[in-house]
Design a binder for these strands. Sequence first.
DNA 1: TAGACTCTGTAACAAATGTTACTATACTTT
DNA 2: AAAGTATAGTAACATTTGTTACAGAGTCTA
Lengths: 210, 210
Amino acid sequence: MIQLLKDNYGNLFEKELLLEINGVGTFKTIPEGFTIIRPGSYTTSMPLIIEGAIKIIREDANGDELLLYFLEKGDTCAMTLSCCFGQHKSEIKAITETETTLIMIPIRKMEEWITKYYSWRNFVFESYHNRLLEAIETIDSIAFLNMDERLLKYLKNKTKINQNTIIKNTHQEIAYDLHTSRVVISRLLKKLENEGKIQLNRNSIEIISL
Amino acid sequence: MIQLLKDNYGNLFEKELLLEINGVGTFKTIPEGFTIIRPGSYTTSMPLIIEGAIKIIREDANGDELLLYFLEKGDTCAMTLSCCFGQHKSEIKAITETETTLIMIPIRKMEEWITKYYSWRNFVFESYHNRLLEAIETIDSIAFLNMDERLLKYLKNKTKINQNTIIKNTHQEIAYDLHTSRVVISRLLKKLENEGKIQLNRNSIEIISL
DNA sequence: TAGACTCTGTAACAAATGTTACTATACTTT
DNA sequence: AAAGTATAGTAACATTTGTTACAGAGTCTA
């Protein structure tokens, strides 16, 4: 069995299930910045993240965008889950934030395992729960926080996800994620720099202390 | 078997399951404006809505509030679902919007039925899916719409849920749901009245044409 | 190296939303 | 009926966020 699978899901799933996953799952490594899922698309397999991070974005009909949350290793996409179960189409866009390694599980199997393995059932429900919580967390941020606080939270989150205190993004990219304008982000970042919390450079932001 | 159960879930669940629900479920009728679930609370049973409507509200530590969505007959609370499965505590507040009749299902049974009945499994997953979609819909509204559009959407939704073109609420109550101030709501409502879309009265709003 | 292009900084202004304060009216209670 | 309370209307103003415009600095390419 591939070591990566064992490392990431070994304490979550029983041995038989791990063997099944290893048998029917397809391993895939996807480069950074690749769009995995688009709004309106249907999926026939479900991804388990082994390594890396995926950015889940809401995109409406006018092309307005907003970052919903990040997925990391050990996570799966709840939207894909329910798309698989119910044959619904996707309402979100998924882009690899870093290079990402996935195991793709065919729908047929994931349905079968629901009745067969308690640990799998648990994993699926936990995933739904976590995604619902993250959606609510996003709602909290947009509804209750001002843009400066949202930006701060975003920067913290980003350093955690990328395991790096240097954030390689333009102000425009950040503005898209937070659904605001570039000028607003530049303004607030400059304020953070003046407060000594970050260091601004072209195409990147170094976090000093948030 | 109670007719209401058959009427609302008859085409969703098989006969055996309906009989089981009827056997172990407890029927409850709750008056309007009653708080069913509070943030931080744990639940040991899961509600199926038979009649009426429930308002699901996010409430943060500072007491800030925001309406997430309404639940109607045929719905169940996904947050409660995952609370039951995972022993998590509630992150939301649930208040009856109208008088509501529920069937309460003990956790033990709902877990057992997951493996036993395909239709139940389906129902649970569909519920999660729908709640996730509604959370995303809420995110859309807060992120992409201005307050006047959000108010309009709110009024439309409210007439649908209550089956009544007269909305019995004060401006303050609406302001809480949309997490803004009373003055803002009064201002926008007055604008809608001037446009001939609504008629304002003390403690109530009559919808003319939205 | 000249020109094109991208990214950032900044000012000036516009629009949306939030706050405070005060008034009038309707309703409730004593 | 008088007093108190809740609700709504409105003005004036503050704050936050969004928009437009332009300049300068870095990067890329012919």
